[in-house]
Write a protein that binds this DNA or RNA. Structure first.
Lengths: 138, 138
DNA sequence: ACAATTAGTGTGTATATGCACACAACGGGG
DNA sequence: CCCCGTTGTGTGCATATACACACTAATTGT
């Protein structure tokens, strides 16, 4: 049989995500947020007039997960929301505090990126990103 | 600047893990468990006389996370525990019910593996596993 | 023998994730 | 106009993840 569980994609993908998340989280903690919150803030900064659902698609994240993540960021005063054009949905913006925090966090992000690049080497690094992107399409 | 967030390893790793987990979870749900629980059961079956901490290392998982995961499996009657040799730690075994459930789950696992293999192609599949293993070492 | 170290466990708190489901508002067809 | 499908939102529940901390039991040094 080919039941070689050491080749289990699920297991390896989750392990990798846990390892990378832990690493990033330890850095992000210095400015009082998590790595996941950083990702959401970045996407909010990059976009404009997108609804919660559209943002969730961008993040390959379940919409309801994002709803709660953003609610948390609003409670922390990092993000503000406003009704969308047709009144049905919601749009989000970074608050001043959110912008400042993101500025503080970017150098830490660079550090983390560079740690991973050191582990894998530049070539493998880029290939890895591509592979992960393909896996996301499952 | 090289602040290209589309190359963020964290983001891509978490996205990939979410996508793969969702896929596996949908299949595992048919036999009443999650993909993560499947991984833990497999490791318990494969090992013998290992403490919680040692199992956590194997799974690249925080020990306290595993404590709660296994507690859940015990409540479900899939796993039993016994004191370890020196009396300090704990060892775990699959119950009969656990063995049966795992047998039911393995075909679903094969299905999920094969779905990912189809997406990536055999070559890329193996490379991906390797890459993920390296990332886990961060 | 016993104090201190070490190796192991478990709990409190906070966050993240996703499915099922309920709810709200716009827009079109009778 | 109103019913209804479509497109949005948010909540309940269950699980997963990790850090900080407290606890327990074997071991070791004197």
């Amino acid at each position: 049989m080919d039941d070689d569980f050491s080749l289990c994609v699920l297991d390896n993908a989750r392990r990798a995500a846990r390892a990378v998340s832990r690493h990033y989280d330890r850095l992000a903690r210095k400015v009082g947020m998590t790595a996941g919150q950083f990702s959401v803030l970045v996407v909010i900064r990059q976009t404009r007039d997108e609804t919660t659902g559209e943002l969730a698609d961008r993040l390959s994240m379940e919409r309801t997960t994002l709803v709660r993540n953003i609610a948390l960021l609003e409670r922390k005063g990092l993000v503000t929301s406003s009704p969308s054009a047709d009144g049905r949905g919601k749009n989000y913006q970074l608050s001043d505090k959110g912008v400042k925090l993101l500025d503080d966090a970017v150098p830490l992000w660079r550090q983390a990126q560079s740690d991973v690049r050191d582990l894998l080497g530049q070539d493998e690094f880029l290939k890895t990103i591509n592979t992960l992107k393909r896996l996301s399409q499952l």
